[in-house]
């Protein structure tokens, strides 16, 4: 699909992972994440195996490790909480380098960190091998409520249009000598945001009018019917099934 429709997260390629239908990949990632979350945190080796599995998928998808790791930095603000846990959770204390840390806190932090990181890694892999548009089609195929899919697809379509409008407004402001320098100028920025909201709202009305003029009655027609063969489902299921085996081992051992 769409040449030149590449999002920053997407990495163009022709690997077997890229070729899988989006709804298979979505289902696989979701199941993988559920399995990872269901794994007992004491089975540290299991998380190592999960990471190895993802590394394997990345290798098949020919996504370089650097690319993957850089995009995983998005996780950092979310795990800041995990770093606090050893200091604030009450319980047995251990001393490490002269700092007193709580044992349950350490386990809790490890739990959040390991599971979170694996989830983010799986999502980044999905995003870098699946185009945004294809993801939406996949969600639609997986019976996500159509209204949500429509909203997301309008976000993709009009994101650039609205950013452009914002940029023009900013140029117009600066052309009249305005530079946002401090709190005193927040009022102006607030008014710009308001104006942008009104403009976007009015555009929404015009788009709706144009849609009705072409026969829109509340549901989007299905233009691209996604299909997946048994082999494709099997290929996609390889990741969550292997992970499930690891998880079961983790509970029994």
């Amino acid at each position: 699909m769409g040449a030149g429709h590449a999002h920053k997260l997407y990495r163009h390629g022709h690997s077997p992972v890229h070729a899988l239908p989006p709804h298979c990949k979505l289902a696989a990632v979701l199941c993988f994440v559920l399995v990872v979350v269901a794994t007992p945190r004491e089975a540290v080796w299991a998380f190592g195996l999960y990471a190895a599995l993802l590394a394997g998928v990345a290798a098949v998808a020919r996504v370089p490790a650097g690319f993957l790791l850089r995009r995983m930095l998005i996780e950092v603000p979310f795990v800041a909480f995990a770093v606090l846990m050893p200091f604030v959770v009450p319980g047995d204390q251990v001393h490490f380098l002269g700092i007193s840390l709580s044992v349950p806190g350490l386990w809790g932090a490890w739990n959040v960190l390991a599971k979170g990181t694996l989830g983010v890694a799986a999502s980044v892999l999905l995003a870098s091998t699946t185009e945004l548009r294809a993801l939406l089609l996949g969600l639609e195929r997986l019976r996500l409520p159509p209204m949500l899919v429509q909203i997301a697809s309008f976000m993709i379509r009009y994101g650039d249009v609205i950013t452009d409008e914002l940029r023009r407004m900013s140029i117009a402001r600066r052309s009249r000598g305005f530079e946002a320098r401090g709190v005193r100028h927040w009022g102006v920025l607030g008014k710009s945001a308001g104006a942008l909201f009104i403009r976007s709202y009015e555009r929404g009305e015009r788009v709706h009018l144009a849609m009705m003029s072409r026969g829109y009655t509340g549901t989007m027609p299905v233009i691209d019917q996604l299909t997946a063969s048994r082999a494709q489902w099997t290929a996609a299921a390889a990741l969550p099934l292997t992970a499930l085996a690891v998880c079961l081992l983790g509970w029994t051992l």
């Binding site: 769409g2 429709h5 379509r157 555009r203 009018l209 144009a210 849609m211 829109y216 027609p221």
Partner: peptide, 23 residues
């Protein structure tokens, strides 16, 4: 309509042109 950005609301040209007949 006057502003094509109002008229073209689908993610790709092909899907947009298909919208009317598909509906």
């Amino acid at each position: 309509f006057q502003d094509p950005d109002d008229q073209l609301f689908m993610p790709t040209v092909r899907e947009d042109v298909a919208f009317g007949p598909a509906t």
